[in-house]
Write a protein that binds this DNA or RNA. Structure first.
Length: 949
RNA sequence: GCGGGGGUACCCAAGCGGCCGAAGGGGCAGCGUUGAGGGCGCUGUGCACGUAGGUGCUUCGUGAGUUCGAAUCUCACCCCCCGCACCA
């Protein structure tokens, strides 16, 4: 079987499946249904074998369930709402070389690339309209999807579904508005998630600073120095201020005050408040060396020069608390040594000789933990790395264990308990204001610098609601989680971690909030209950229903059975069909998604189902899949170019080989290392086994022997076990285990059978291969269809029943017999090896005496020697009996004892095989009748073996 | 930091109290077949000893413990991975 034929096979059967529509699922009340839904993909770029793996998991399950007699609904849609496509399209429009080059490399034709500057064309291209698309990928690997239910989240009909959802959630008061700081791109005027920013900006977060307004008089007017800190409780310990003389500062009007801000901070603050305007540029040098007033303590503190203050970080005005901030302490020590600098600003040495003010009591430290830690770590200068560590150390201890002392207004209070109160008090007293900044610089993928924008009318989903959380936890409790180890994590997300979630944004591809058209539903929040939409998508597509017709009343009726169908614009009959589909298919039986979705998609799905549907419609199962890594452990991704497009695999007709290899690699929920090279190797290995399969199918029709010997009974018995084990593994979704049994173990047994059988028994072999093809069908469907066809099977193997397991077909005697044969074969080899007898003339196999079998059975029952020796048949063996007894006691095996007859019978039937294999005469004897010295070594299940020249 | 998951022979990966020197796959080695260092088949793959299928020692991140018995249970320690949101 050459690869070209394999390729034809895959195409051929995909076409036949499609023509026969065998994966199209309709309501059939005589059958149990099984509804599985994989996270619908976001078509952000070309697909690769990493994507394929995720969906192949579903496909094997869907196919297996179908064979088990379920009416399986396996649909797919496209999540097109969101930003990545918009950003990509924008880049193409701007002619960004890198983006365009990458697309070309991935195989997008030059003339197509230009078209993709339209975000809608972009998502369509990668969802369905090209060889690089997801749909193409899924079709190429043979996913058994009902395509009649396909939809995109930018369809008008789907948008109506989302609007229904949000209208109803709003009525339940689960959607609310409040103030919220977001990371924001000033150029695109939209919030930035991790996906939208450059790699080095990943993980950036918004931090809330408290800016204390220190006062200074200059040129007869009062300027405020807003010193931003993350530790508001330390304001009582300020000894000085730091400004960077080399940095650009401005004085700005903020409300009715005048603030000194770094130039960077001035540009940012406008996104947080509107009452800001520039007054003038301002040189900090004019006030360095002067004194300003702490708004809380009214202490006068000196303003010192500091080149480590960066403009991009917070306000550019830094208050110094050397007792608790190692950085401040070291900076002051450094400055003491710089006489020229001090001279320049006319700062006297005595002015630096201030006392540090300790505020926080800690057991293991003195008054100034920062000084202690600096000494401990031997920090002598502004060494970034060490200071970073020291700062964290001090902060952690002070926050968790520290208590404020009498130098503060909160003596005796624990830091972690009073921190928020301090902030509130200061804000209320007008002594400080909130200033937001990112914890590290943010660069948007569009190139702009990210800022924090304070949005004052942000819409939230109220995931913090305790009742809502409670019913979500109920839902989870009633659902199956595979693998079970992820349940705890999900529980934690639902119960503890999840807070209110912004569910709308100003600019994105998607759906308008029905009650506030200024906002679009945020892309994760429109993907929570879409599984319900699949149930009606078929009707919507087939009946060409448009968005106009899908008013809220339609969904109320279809999903809830509420309201009057007469009020709907849709024909009653069609409406009833939708209702029927929903009632039949819902709830979802299995929801599949990657681990990275536990805290978002999956948690949101749980929340929203809990809110929108009754308990009997809640999802019944959640299943996690892992991802594909390359040989270096990096995620396979389009941008890295380290994956195969499925078309490349299909070109060689190697889809089934790849499928099998993937399943065999690891459990579906674990990540697998499966780079291109590994794919190649696996495909080669697996497809060579496939050739064997074709050969076996041909052999079924060969002339054959009729007797049904121990090997025949053995292989039939083993096939029963393989079916049972494969089924058991599939029920637990353990695809690797299933493939190990159904493919590899069965393969090895069948190979062994064929090798050892001189004349195949036609009936037996046909049965074996028939069973085998059926249990392989979920994994390698194209191959199995072809083999099924060649075997003369009717219809599609995809529609066949899963083989029944039948305990009566398990033949333990035959299995013992075969095992006996294997043991003897191994032993003969070993003896040959040790003795150096290359070519023995004769091999004598001596089956052990009856009394040994009896004794073994007796010992397994727990009988003692004294008891046994009362019996003649043992006593007359004398010392041999006692010796054997001791041996048995030592080993205590739990194996069934074969009878003499059984042993001899099995050996008789395998005699030919031994003679052929070892090219020697094989003689069978019973221990009782043997003259051989070594006959005494015979044991039940382990005959004595004598080789003779 | 918080939460979750892991560390098994050359590699991947099962096993989760006795049948475990540890499944399966890969790799590697030998033999056979073959025109071939390719394909296929068979065999081997911790160490040592052994002219009879055996025996001894040693191994499942590290250390200690429970047990007649531990890769499997308990405790401590070390290391790795994942998620931490408004982003798909």
């Amino acid at each position: 079987m050459d690869p070209i034929k394999l390729k034809e096979i895959e195409k051929k059967w995909q076409k036949k499946w499609k023509e026969a529509g065998i994966f199209e699922a309709d309501v059939d009340k005589n059958k149990d249904k099984f509804f599985l839904a994989h996270a619908y993909p976001y078509p952000s770029g070309p697909t690769h074998h990493g994507h394929a793996r995720a969906y192949l998991f579903d496909d094997a399950i869907a196919r297996y369930k179908r064979m088990k007699g379920f009416n399986v609904l396996y649909p797919m849609g496209w999540h097109c709402t969101g930003n990545p496509a918009m950003i990509k399209a924008e880049k193409i429009r701007k002619g960004d070389e890198e983006t365009i080059e990458k697309l070309k490399e991935a195989g997008v034709p030059e003339e197509e690339v230009k078209r993709l500057r339209d975000p809608y064309k972009y998502v369509r291209f990668f969802a369905t309209e090209s060889d690089l698309s997801y749909k193409s990928c899924l079709e190429t690997v043979g996913c058994s999807i009902d395509w009649r239910r396909e939809f995109m989240t930018i369809d008008e009909t789907y948008k109506k579904f989302i609007q229904w959802q949000y209208s109803r959630l709003r009525e339940m008061d689960y959607v609310q508005q409040k103030e919220y700081p977001v990371i924001w791109c000033p150029d695109q005027e939209m919030p930035l998630g991790d996906n939208d920013v450059e790699d080095e900006s990943q993980g950036a977060e918004s931090e809330e600073y408290v800016a204390y307004k220190f006062r200074i008089e200059t040129d007869g007017k009062e300027i405020l120095l807003p010193a931003a800190t993350l530790r508001p409780e330390t304001v009582y310990g300020v000894t000085n201020m730091f400004l960077n003389p080399d940095l650009d500062y401005v004085v700005a009007e903020v409300g009715d005050e005048e603030w000194l801000l770094s130039h960077d901070a001035y540009e940012k603050i406008g996104y947080q408040r509107e009452d800001v305007s520039l007054i003038e540029e301002f040189s900090p040098e004019s006030i360095i060396g002067d004194y300003c007033k702490n708004p809380v303590t009214d202490e006068e503190v000196i303003i010192l020069p500091a080149d480590f203050v960066k403009g991009g970080s917070a306000t550019g005005v830094v208050m110094s608390v050397p007792a608790h901030a190692p950085y401040d302490h070291i900076a002051i020590k450094e400055l003491e040594k710089k006489e020229d600098v001090l001279k320049k600003y006319d700062i006297g040495a005595e002015e630096l000789d201030f006392d540090y003010i300790g505020l926080i009591d800690l057991e293991e430290y003195g008054k100034c933990p920062a000084v202690d830690v600096a000494e401990e770590l031997e920090i002598k200068k502004l060494d970034e790395e060490k200071l970073e560590r020291a700062t964290k150390e001090v902060y952690r201890k002070e926050f968790h264990q520290g208590t404020l002392n009498e130098n503060t207004a909160y003596p005796g209070k624990k830091v972690n308990e009073i921190k928020d109160k301090v902030k509130e008090d200061m804000l209320a007293g007008g002594l400080a204001e909130i200033y937001y900044d990112t914890n590290k610089p943010v660069v948007c993928k569009c190139g702009a610098k990210g800022v924090i924008k304070l949005v004052d009318d942000q819409w939230f989903l109220k995931y913090s609601d305790r009742e809502w959380k409670a019913s979500s936890l109920d839902l989870l409790e009633g659902a199956e989680v595979v693998p079970e180890k992820y349940r705890k994590e999900l529980e934690y997300y639902l119960d503890v971690w999840m807070g209110d979630k912004p569910c709308a944004r100003k600019k994105t591809l998607g759906t308008e909030l029905p009650f506030d058209k200024n906002w679009m539903v945020e892309p994760l929040s429109d993907s929570t209950v879409y599984m319900a939409y699949y149930t009606i998508a078929k009707t919507i597509n087939q009946e060409n229903i448009d968005g106009e017709e899908l008013e809220n009343s339609v969904f109320d009726y279809v999903f809830w059975g509420k309201g009057d169908p007469e009020n709907c614009k849709i024909e009653n009959e069609i409406l009833e069909e939708m209702r029927e589909e929903f009632l039949y298919w819902y709830p979802l039986d299995m929801r599949i998604a990657g681990t990275e979705h536990l805290s978002n998609h999956l948690s949101f799905m749980i929340f929203q189902h809990a809110a929108l549907f009754n308990e009997e419609r809640w999802p019944k199962g959640i299943t996690i899949h892992g991802m594909v890594l390359d040989e270096n452990g990096n995620k396979v991704s389009a941008s890295k170019g380290n994956g195969y497009n499925m078309k490349e695999i299909a070109k060689g007709g190697m889809v089934d080989a790849m499928r099998l290899g993937m399943y065999a690699k690891s459990s579906p929920w674990d990540d697998i290392r499966f780079g291109k090279k590994e794919v190649d190797r696996t495909i080669e290995n697996v497809s060579s086994r496939f050739q064997k399969l074709f050969k076996y199918v041909e052999m079924v029709d060969e002339e054959s022997g009729e007797t049904k010997d121990v090997l025949d009974r053995w292989i039939l018995s083993k096939m029963q076990r393989h079916v049972g084990n494969t089924e058991d593994a599939l029920e637990r979704l353990e695809l690797m285990e299933a493939v190990n049994h159904g493919f590899y173990a069965a393969f090895n047994d069948i190979k062994d059978y064929v090798n050892k059988k001189e004349n195949l028994n036609h009936n037996v072999f046909e049965r074996v291969i028939n069973i085998w093809i059926r249990i392989l069908a979920p994994f390698t469907p194209h191959l199995c269809e072809e083999l099924w066809d060649r075997m003369g099977g009717d219809g599609f193997v995809s529609e066949e029943d899963w083989p029944e397991t039948n305990d009566e077909m398990i033949d333990e005697a035959a299995e013992r017999g075969k095992k006996l044969g294997d043991t003897i074969e191994d032993d003969i080899r070993e003896i040959k090896d040790i003795t150096g007898l290359e070519k023995p003339e004769q091999i004598k196999i001596v089956s052990s005496a009856v009394w040994k079998r009896e004794m073994k059975a007796a010992v397994q029952e727990g009988k003692e020697l004294s008891e046994l020796m009362k019996k003649d048949r043992f006593r007359k063996q004398g010392d041999d009996a006692a010796r054997y007894f001791r041996e048995l006691k030592k080993k205590h095996e739990e194996v069934d004892v074969m009878s003499c007859e059984e042993e001899i019978q099995a050996l008789e039937e395998m005699k030919d095989y031994f003679e052929q294999t070892f090219q020697a005469e094989v003689v069978l004897e019973r221990e009782e009748e043997s003259d051989e010295d070594k006959a005494g070594k015979a044991r039940p299940g382990k005959p004595a073996i004598v080789l003779k020249d």
